[in-house]
């Protein structure tokens, strides 16, 4: 499951991720991170079975956690099923179905945003 962590300036200096890994033994994978001196946003991939524990722990440390259930929204009215988004998606969250329509695997998406600019029809948006 993909989880978005937001770190406020007060807690940005603490090694939260490392401590959560040590405490839960969960193999967290950092998909995307943007951190500067005062704040940070990190998308992590958490094994489903340890998800509740990991979320609880981050929240107890003051990290703002949101589960990326719908990381990206596909506007069916705008989409013409062309596929311009498919080859720029390096984690293969976007692909064709049998009938050549587009399908989005929300569990894979890490909100990198490459598909959003690649879509000629502005059919993809961050949720």
């Amino acid at each position: 499951m993909k989880i978005l962590l937001r770190f406020t300036p007060e807690i940005i200096q603490e090694p939260h991720i490392a401590e959560v890994i040590l405490e839960t033994g969960a193999k967290l994978n950092i998909d995307r991170a943007s951190i500067d001196a005062v704040s940070g946003e990190v998308v992590i991939d958490v094994p489903d079975e340890k998800c509740d524990k990991v979320i609880k722990l981050f929240r107890s440390r003051g990290v703002v956690v949101s589960v990326l259930e719908h990381p990206i929204v596909l506007d069916e009215d705008e989409c013409v099923q062309c596929g311009a988004c498919i080859s720029v998606c390096h984690i293969k969250a976007l692909s064709f179905k049998e009938d050549w329509s587009i399908t989005l695997d929300e569990r894979r998406c890490n909100q990198c945003g490459a598909c959003i600019t690649a879509c000629p029809h502005r059919a993809l948006e961050f949720s």
Partner: peptide, 23 residues
């Protein structure tokens, strides 16, 4: 097929036109 080979490397392909709509 979604993938072509270029210099021994697998490269993902994207159509820009829609087969769904062409059909």
């Amino acid at each position: 097929s979604g993938v072509i080979e270029l210099d021994g490397k697998e490269v993902r392909t994207s159509p820009l036109s829609s087969f769904f709509m062409a059909r």
